[in-house]
Design a protein around this nucleic acid. Sequence first.
DNA 1: AATGAATGAGCCTTCATTCAT
DNA 2: CATGAATGAAGGCTCATTCAT
Lengths: 202, 202, 202, 202
Amino acid sequence: MFAAGTDSWREYGPSQLPEVLQSALRVFAERGYEGASIRGLAAAAGLSVPGMYHHYRSKQDILVNLMEHALVDLIARCREALASAGPEPAARFDALVECMVRFHMFRRAEAFVASTELRSLEPGNRARCVALRDELQGMVADVIEEGCAAGVFSTPYPADAARAVSTLCVGVATWYREDGPLSPDQVVERQLVLLRNLVGRR
Amino acid sequence: MFAAGTDSWREYGPSQLPEVLQSALRVFAERGYEGASIRGLAAAAGLSVPGMYHHYRSKQDILVNLMEHALVDLIARCREALASAGPEPAARFDALVECMVRFHMFRRAEAFVASTELRSLEPGNRARCVALRDELQGMVADVIEEGCAAGVFSTPYPADAARAVSTLCVGVATWYREDGPLSPDQVVERQLVLLRNLVGRR
Amino acid sequence: MFAAGTDSWREYGPSQLPEVLQSALRVFAERGYEGASIRGLAAAAGLSVPGMYHHYRSKQDILVNLMEHALVDLIARCREALASAGPEPAARFDALVECMVRFHMFRRAEAFVASTELRSLEPGNRARCVALRDELQGMVADVIEEGCAAGVFSTPYPADAARAVSTLCVGVATWYREDGPLSPDQVVERQLVLLRNLVGRR
Amino acid sequence: MFAAGTDSWREYGPSQLPEVLQSALRVFAERGYEGASIRGLAAAAGLSVPGMYHHYRSKQDILVNLMEHALVDLIARCREALASAGPEPAARFDALVECMVRFHMFRRAEAFVASTELRSLEPGNRARCVALRDELQGMVADVIEEGCAAGVFSTPYPADAARAVSTLCVGVATWYREDGPLSPDQVVERQLVLLRNLVGRR
DNA sequence: AATGAATGAGCCTTCATTCAT
DNA sequence: CATGAATGAAGGCTCATTCAT
């Protein structure tokens, strides 16, 4: 049912993020960037305020690090997922969806903040992160178009379908709870079923 | 193609919001609740700061008014849409989706703020708004379940499908632009196609 | 001995400065601009910190107001002094010196801060204040050149003499004390004697 | 025209200051003591922050070293200048003025900071530096009084003249530029002319 | 002497809010 | 409703300084 091949994109050990960023992530996820204060971030990190500035030049800098880390990690995993999926559009689609869904469950806070706080980035930083996000959306769009071209997907609106697929994968971060009723594998399965339908998989 | 019957739920004149709320809406949509200051809201409204407090007891109060107005309006429209759609689950689904999509295009800022700033509400206010939102999601879930029961929708995961439908309708507020390439009717049409597929409409 | 004519340039009632600026003046004179904190300025003014910001947009703004007030007042008095002195270069020189010396005694703190904190001004503000200062120096230079041209001053270096005259008048603010051994009139008299010599008055 | 005798007080090789103090000097001259940060001083010195504390116990310590070095050097030079000038008051005056003017040109930053930042010294340090400064002013005052006693200076206000002479010598540091229109010798010459006049040299 | 990590205190400024007029 | 004055609390950030390595 899942894509075959190398599986490192499916593995989620403990976060690689520096501890300061991990705690910042929790705070940003809970209160939003504007709602978080450096004092709060420092307290969450067990640091003093200047201690935070020793590690990061500004509050914005913390957010940027967080967001780029998340996006870069997700993109890398998606690439691996596609690579391991082989050439069949259906398998590629499944791998991509599975990869994104897993990421949005296992890196929930990263993913949530990355999708929520784009607006809080200063123009230059935003541009860089938007470019990364667009890269991701491009991967989804490409896979769907391949599928349509190959006749395995039948949706008449591949571009809109691609946006919907992205939206729903990202949305997982909004509602998924580790202690919820569904196992991660079940969530993946259900999203796959819904999204295959959405693109009109035959 | 669209649901028949009384059509007031399809009509969007200029916003009924008091002007103060309209300008507040713009500010909240642009900078977020935390990122907006009373001074900024007052300036946007062409009022003095105490003038704002003459109308609303607090910044929170402004947000609450905005959000309740949006949710109440949306719920009312959805009810009308369902009422005008008659008993057929397929027609009811289409009406509900169309109604939500239209709302998220024509009341974009309201809808965006309402979905974005739930977290900025104080507990009591949040509870009330969450209840309203749940009511909406309940309408979607009900319609989908009716459809499944009647055999017109085939998705094995009606609850997940309902969440997906909500998510995608809400998502329209994120990307729709008045001056974009698609007319509102086209957007409705496309969302309908995608979402009918998603629920496995036969 | 003193220049004749209208004498308003010689009169120094209590400072016309708003009280907030008066207290800021004391603090700046004592600790310098960088050494003064908004908290200190507010305390000296009997205000809260935001109270200061109600009156002035920034710490810099306070300094600018102070400096421009001082320079404008001094220039106006110097003009009056020259006007009341008539056409004789010697009388004009005496009037100008007397005026500047008096100002640097009776508006000691203003004058001191104005000459000391030019460097603390942001570029735009500095430019404006430097222009005012240059205007003053121009008046001194003009009077000395007139005197040289008329043969009443004999210094071979009128430009350097003008700078020296300015420097010494400004310097009065550095050492003069209200409770010192010399009366203001005595100070004026002595500076006149020294400076007439300096320019080689015949 | 210049005083005769041993000339080491006229010679200015590269500064003898330790490099750390030289760079600190530049920073203090540019931004003032309060406006300078240890980080800035360290950066200017090419040192790390703890590296600064290896050399000096505090920011204040740096300033004290700088100021004492400057004052001690200047006093020593003035003594030499007087010694080399012989017994004639006129020659002694000229030597002293020349010495001070040269110092304020060739050790511009030292002299500027020493005269500007007295106020930034803690009480004990200030007392020591003020004593040094007073020693200098005493030398000027003595020379002028000698001259008056000997009948070569005619000013009726020798004490005020002494202050003026000091002020104008110190002032040189304010306006002199290495790349200005006047050579150091020309500056000395002009100051001598002005100051001889000021004291009423016959 | 450098590097890296840390901090209490304090910086300038803005916040939401109030009240008298 | 506006204006003007005010404020406690908090905002992001930097300060001089220290210590372990």
